[in-house]
Every structure is written in C-alpha cells, then in structure tokens.
Design a protein around this nucleic acid. Structure first.
Lengths: 141, 141
DNA sequence: GACGAAGTGGGAGGAAGTGGGGGAAACGGG
DNA sequence: CCCGTTTCCCCCACTTCCTCCCACTTCGTC
C-alpha cells in the first residue's frame, strides 16, 4: 500500500525521482493520468487495468462514458523508471497539474498522487482539522 | 493499553526515545500519522490496519473518502525502533505537529498521542476542570 | 555503593536526492 | 534525400540526509 507524503524537486529536464518507499510497489511499469483535480495519479499496472476495465464497462451510449474516458484514458502515459529511479513527466501532464519544480508525492492506498507544491499547500490550508474531524465522525471512524 | 503522559526530548537528529512502558505493547513495527489536530498518533500494527480498512471501505465516489485518505494514509509512516529504542520522526510529521525538541507522549488507550510540549501545555490550560466536569456529567460518568 | 536499565548525544558509512554532460534518435527544413 | 536542430535517454558525479553503531550520564533498585 502506498502511504506517506514526500516533498520532491523536479529537475530542469522534467524528471522526477521516485521515493524508495514507492518503487517496489510500483513495479516495472506504471501509468500516470490526470486525477480528479489539478493533480496527477500514478497507478501500478494492475490498478490501471482495473480502472480501464471499469471505464470501458460503461456503455458507449451512456453519456457519462465518453467524458470519463477522455479525461482518464485520454491523458494516460504508461512509462517506467530510468536507471536512476526517475521518471520523465510529459509536458501535457505537468501543465495540467501546474507542476514546475517543487512537488509533493502523496501515497493514498492504491495509488500515488502528484501535486505541485503550491497547490498542495493551498489544499492543506483549506482542509482544516475541523473538517477532518467532521468527516471522520460522519464516516464512523 | 497505553496510558500515562511522558515528557521527552527529541534530539537534533529528530529521534524520539519510546518510553519503556509503551515498547512492549507497540510491537515490532508501528505507524505514525497525523492526528485530528496539530499532534500525531502512534498506532500499533493491528490498530493501523483496522483504520486503513475503514478508510478504504468508503467508496471512492464518496466525497468524504479522499480528504480522509489524504489526511491519514497520506501522512502515514510505518517504522520501527532502532537499536536504542528510538524512532526517527520524518520532517513532514514534525512540521505538522510543530515539534522541535520538547514533546509530550500521551497514552490514550488504543493509541499514543505525540504533542509538542508547547501545544500540550496550551491545551491543558484551555481544558478547564469545569469543562471536564460538564463533559463527564453529560457522558453519564 | 554497585549494577543495570533508561534517557541523551554524536560520528561514520551508505543510501537516497539532485544536477549536468554526451550520444542517439526523431523531427523539420532546405 | 541530406543536413541541422532539438529532444529524449542513458550514464556519470556530487551532496545531503538518514541509519547504524558506539559512548556517556542519570536514575532506580538490589
């Protein structure tokens, strides 16, 4: 399971080092897609194929299907780590997440989220302890 | 069960000695996460896996799930004691709890809370005897 | 008073994070 | 079709941080 948050720097060539904690679980090849917001998701192979199965299970006639497929499948890049344990982030994806140099890698169970540091800090500021407390209570934690 | 409060010092390398009273109950490996405020939780293995099960049980579509997963799983660090019975506190977690040197370790049943000394003292000052009395009464104690 | 456990401190080796150069491949223009 | 430019990828190098190990002090107990 992916867990923990790691602040990292992307170098001028757009390369991102993967934390040692994530490497083993990610496996040989993995897929990067847009998340449900201005950040990215990094999924191991089997998680990605599960997601694709769900997306394609929707009938094409279903009005929900095509926007979802465009959003996720249309942004997907399947790649792997280089010899130094780094991954090259395509410009399209970097732009979507407004990623320049400072990023935050966040493990959330089955996937990794990749945020620009700015946006992550803003998100953190917005999510107060009170909100978490309320959510936890209503979720029965 | 964890009980009792212990004032401790974190050294310049960010290492925290675990009180002898907690070591046996903590077991080999344990997990440190953000609490519902500016302090940390330390959970034994089974407590953490219980919590993860609950967090992941939520549907991804549920709007509550993602903030909760980010808050807890996204901050989690699973670690163990070193040869001297100490644990290294990652910078991200220390920052969240505003922990520098002086801390307070508080056993609260199923988990341990880790506060910066300042915040703990402030909290103690804030929680008056009257409040406790009222809460106890309304809880039927 | 001595011994042992518990709390605190610091050095060194190695892994992990970061940066940059060079060559091959791909693309576009002449 | 060829040449120049650009982009990507692989390799090399450096630095910082973390972890492991060793050492000392204090407190409680026998």
């Amino acid at each position: 399971m992916f867990q923990g948050a790691f602040p990292y720097r992307i170098d001028d060539k757009g390369r991102l080092k993967m934390p040692a904690e994530f490497v083993a679980e990610l496996g040989e090849s993995f897929t990067i897609i847009r998340g449900m917001g201005k950040y990215l998701w990094i999924l191991p192979e089997h998680e990605w194929s599960t997601m694709v199965t769900q997306l394609r299970g929707e009938s094409m006639a279903d009005q929900r299907a095509m926007p979802l497929q465009r959003w996720f499948i249309g942004s997907a890049v399947t790649t792997a780590l280089d010899g130094q344990g780094r991954v090259a982030l395509p410009t399209v994806l970097r732009d979507h997440a407004a990623i320049k140099h400072e990023v935050m890698l966040v493990g959330v169970g089955t996937r990794i989220e990749l945020w620009s540091r700015e946006r992550w800090d803003a998100y953190e500021a917005e999510v107060s302890e009170q909100l978490i407390e309320e959510l936890a209570r209503s979720a029965g934690l």
